[in-house]
Amino acid sequence: MLMTNIENIPGKTIVKHYGLVSGSTVRAKHAGRDIMAGLKNLVGGELKAYTELLQEARDEAVSRMIEQARQKGANAIVNVRFATSSVAQGASELYVYGTAMKVQ
């Protein structure tokens, strides 16, 4: 699956549009990570556990989007956008969306 966040896939011609595809996931941080983060909160610095957690969650959202595009018969997704929102205390939703299309 080809993915870009510009309007086309450079060097390829668009054959067919399939419309919007999206994927989302809601993740909560678990207690062990939270305690470590609480300690890290005292001295500051990067929270590696959270960085990885959000990265994994975003990858999962992307793979859901890819799955949806594949079902429609697309082989590329253009204009991909990411959005993050906190839905509840300690949980955030990671949303990714784009336009599925077939290119040659």
Binding site: L2, N5, K40, N41, G44, E46, L47, Q55, R58
Partner: peptide, 13 residues
């Protein structure tokens, strides 16, 4: 051409 991304979480002291 491909999508690349990077993220980082930084905490306050």
């Amino acid at each position: 051409s491909r999508l690349v991304m990077g993220n980082s979480v930084v905490s306050i002291d």
